[in-house]
Amino acid sequence: EQIEAIAKFDYMGRSPRELSFKKGASLLLYHRASEDWWEGRHNGVDGLIPHQYIVVQD
């Protein structure tokens, strides 16, 4: 089940696996990879999304 999230802040990925996005961006989350990271998608690209930078939608 995919979960929708909105970016709270701009984020610049620090490795090829991390996604970069702007504040207000819509993100799709697949699952929680760790306490700090989600596996997800932004603009058709899959990668890691930092939990602290997003708001998960109910």
Results as ranks from 00 to 15, higher is better:
residue 41 R to L: 08
residue 36 D to W: 09
residue 43 N to F: 15
residue 13 G to N: 06
residue 17 R to I: 04
residue 12 M to C: 14
residue 30 Y to A: 10
residue 27 L to S: 00
residue 15 S to A: 09
residue 37 W to C: 13
residue 42 H to A: 12
residue 10 D to S: 10
residue 4 E to R: 10
residue 14 R to W: 04
residue 56 V to A: 10
residue 8 K to Q: 10
residue 50 P to I: 02
residue 43 N to A: 12
residue 19 L to E: 00
residue 13 G to C: 11
residue 35 E to Y: 10
residue 34 S to M: 06
residue 6 I to Y: 10
residue 22 K to R: 11
residue 26 S to R: 04
residue 6 I to W: 04
residue 17 R to N: 15
residue 10 D to N: 14
residue 2 Q to F: 15
residue 48 L to E: 04
residue 15 S to D: 15
residue 51 H to P: 05
residue 25 A to T: 11
residue 8 K to W: 03
residue 5 A to T: 12
residue 5 A to V: 13
residue 27 L to V: 09
residue 36 D to H: 04
residue 53 Y to H: 14
residue 21 F to E: 01
residue 27 L to W: 01
residue 55 V to I: 08
residue 38 W to F: 03
residue 30 Y to C: 09
residue 8 K to L: 12
residue 39 E to M: 09
residue 16 P to K: 06
residue 13 G to P: 06
residue 32 R to S: 04
residue 45 V to S: 15
residue 54 I to C: 10
residue 29 L to H: 02
residue 29 L to G: 00
residue 20 S to C: 07
residue 36 D to V: 11
residue 47 G to S: 00
residue 40 G to K: 00
residue 52 Q to M: 10
residue 48 L to K: 14
residue 30 Y to W: 10
residue 30 Y to E: 06
residue 54 I to M: 08
residue 54 I to Q: 03
residue 49 I to F: 02
residue 55 V to C: 07
residue 33 A to G: 10
residue 53 Y to K: 14
residue 2 Q to N: 10
residue 11 Y to A: 02
residue 30 Y to H: 12
residue 23 K to E: 14
residue 52 Q to A: 13
residue 8 K to C: 06
residue 22 K to Y: 14
residue 4 E to Y: 07
residue 5 A to I: 02
residue 20 S to Y: 02
residue 24 G to M: 04
residue 25 A to G: 09
residue 23 K to C: 05
residue 46 D to A: 15
residue 33 A to K: 05
residue 27 L to G: 00
residue 2 Q to V: 15
residue 50 P to G: 12
residue 17 R to F: 15
residue 44 G to M: 08
residue 7 A to W: 00
residue 35 E to V: 09
residue 56 V to L: 09
residue 12 M to L: 11
residue 38 W to L: 01
residue 54 I to W: 07
residue 13 G to D: 02
residue 26 S to T: 04
residue 17 R to S: 14
residue 4 E to N: 15
residue 45 V to E: 15
residue 29 L to I: 15
residue 33 A to S: 13
residue 31 H to D: 14
residue 14 R to H: 03
residue 51 H to M: 06
residue 23 K to N: 04
residue 8 K to Y: 15
residue 2 Q to Y: 15
residue 51 H to W: 05
residue 32 R to H: 04
residue 51 H to T: 06
residue 29 L to Y: 01
residue 32 R to C: 03
residue 18 E to Y: 11
residue 10 D to R: 05
residue 9 F to L: 14
residue 56 V to S: 13
residue 17 R to V: 07
residue 48 L to P: 02
residue 32 R to N: 03
residue 10 D to T: 08
residue 30 Y to T: 07
residue 39 E to R: 10
residue 12 M to R: 11
residue 17 R to Q: 14
residue 13 G to F: 02
residue 7 A to I: 01
residue 46 D to R: 15
residue 50 P to F: 04
residue 37 W to R: 03
residue 21 F to H: 01
residue 3 I to L: 07
residue 42 H to R: 05
residue 37 W to H: 09
residue 7 A to R: 00
residue 35 E to H: 03
residue 47 G to M: 00
residue 15 S to T: 12
residue 31 H to T: 14
residue 51 H to R: 10
residue 15 S to W: 04
residue 14 R to Y: 05
residue 53 Y to P: 04
residue 19 L to H: 02
residue 34 S to R: 10
residue 35 E to M: 07
residue 31 H to W: 10
residue 47 G to K: 01
residue 18 E to I: 04
residue 32 R to T: 04
residue 24 G to C: 04
